[in-house]
Structures are given as C-alpha cells and as structure tokens.
Amino acid sequence: MTELTQRIHSILAELRPEVDYSESTDYLADGLLDSTDIVSLVAALDARYGISIDGTEILPEHFTNAETIAGLLGKYGVNP
C-alpha cells in the first residue's frame, strides 16, 4: 500500500467511519460506496489536494478501490 492509498483510506474512513474499506477490492460491488458517497469523496479529494476533479471523470470505474482512486488523482499531479 502506497502512502497515497493510505491517505485515501483515511479520507474514506472520515466519510464512512462505520465501514471497513481495507478488506474490499470493489467498493461499489460490495455496497461500501454509493453515488452520494462518491460525490462526498470527490469534494473531499478536491479540498485535500487543491484540485478540481473534472465532472466527466466521476465514473464508477474510478472509484472501485483505493488504487483506482489513486490512479485518478495521478491525472491531477497527485503523486503516490
């Protein structure tokens, strides 16, 4: 796990403290993240990294797990 994916887990834990994301490789299929959670997560990531994730990038496949989220952040210059 990279430093970035660890930070993503921390942000997810702040959003949904009752959920354990560490055991899941597909948050959506496992019902751990819904559309409103994704919106909250994007807002949190925008604020945390001072970026504005393009609305067209808010696709389910970018929010499958911490690695795919890290991949999305990489497009905005956030290093792993």
Binding site: G31, S35, T56, I58
Partner: peptide, 24 residues
C-alpha cells in the same frame, strides 16, 4: 443496493450516470 429504501412505485435516479451525462 445503494442502501436506500424504495419501491418500484417510487422515483429513482442513477445519480452517477446522470452526473456524468450532464458533465459530458
């Protein structure tokens, strides 16, 4: 599956699909 309670008589929206449609 999204954690909400609703029936088939109810309004339903696929929020991420609509958001993506709008942004595109």
């Amino acid at each position: 599956s999204d954690g909400n309670y609703r029936g088939q008589d109810h309004y339903h929206m696929d929020g991420i699909a609509v958001l993506n449609f709008v942004q595109h």
